[in-house]
Write a protein that binds this DNA or RNA. Structure first.
Lengths: 136, 136
DNA sequence: CTTGAAGCTCTAGTGGCTAGAGGAATTATA
DNA sequence: TATAATTCCTCTAGCCACTAGAGCTTCAAG
């Protein structure tokens, strides 16, 4: 049996976040001590690790709800899990593409070495979209 | 003079967002018509464009506050603008790095072609961090 | 002068937490 | 065993950058 603090240390999920997940229904309400403190089992620990890991990979809480549900039903086909993951992969890739464009633009405008704001490329570019090299 | 709707169309910023920026103090309160509707000048238009453009580049509202302030003082050295932009560039770059790692991991786990959840790599990987190839 | 679009203010909700108040329980030390 | 230090409890509110909706008023075209 783990206290919430121990669970937090083992998983790297902060205490208020664990309580938040409980509220959102991602983890079951655990047993309580005589004094009403949460007491977790190994199962609780592994479920929380699953959640933590999924969050690290950027899945939304809703996605995780689906993935957790699937993981409880080993007999189901895994195509559902795949479509969640594949969709998420697409999201990640499109975010990367956008950020790469930003990066290029930011690199370009931070090269400016003007002395003051009047001729500064950062300010100028922000004020005038036409100066941009790429779409965004 | 533009109505809020015209301003919205010209800048691509949604109407409630314009009012939100006003509330946040990013744009001045504009004049009003006799019937209390907002009426904007060209100055208002270009200020909002500046904001829109900065948001597109991913600057936070706080950053923009600083950049706007600088843009009103053309005599100031532009090193302040640079440090805001350079810091932001760093943020963007570190986000890209993280997303690239995610992408690799997601690609790997979505390659699984198992029939059901019991042996599905997506579920398995999420449950067991040890199966991951890279840090994240 | 009517009608329909566009505007107004105000409140509340989004996601995924995080912070703080004010108190109770547990654990470690004396 | 007494006390002190730490951890835990619930509850409310805040973060960012909007977005949605209710209920009302004003504007512009015909």
């Amino acid at each position: 049996m783990f206290s919430i603090g121990q669970l937090s240390k083992r998983t790297g999920v902060k205490i208020p976040t664990i309580r938040y997940y409980e509220q959102m229904g991602l983890i079951d309400e655990p047993e309580r001590s005589e004094g009403n403190q949460r007491r977790y089992t190994k199962d609780g620990l592994s479920r929380l690790s699953f959640i933590r890991h999924s969050r690290d990979l950027g899945f939304s809480v809703e996605d995780i709800r689906g993935l957790l549900d699937l993981s409880q039903h080993p007999e189901k086909p895994c195509s559902d899990a795949h479509s969640i993951a594949a969709q998420h992969l697409q999201d990640v890739q499109s975010r990367i593409t956008k950020l790469r464009r930003l990066e290029r633009e930011l690199k370009r405008i931070t090269k400016c070495d003007a002395g003051n704001v009047a001729t500064c490329a950062v300010i100028e570019t922000l004020a005038d979209h036409g100066l941009c090299e790429t779409e965004h």
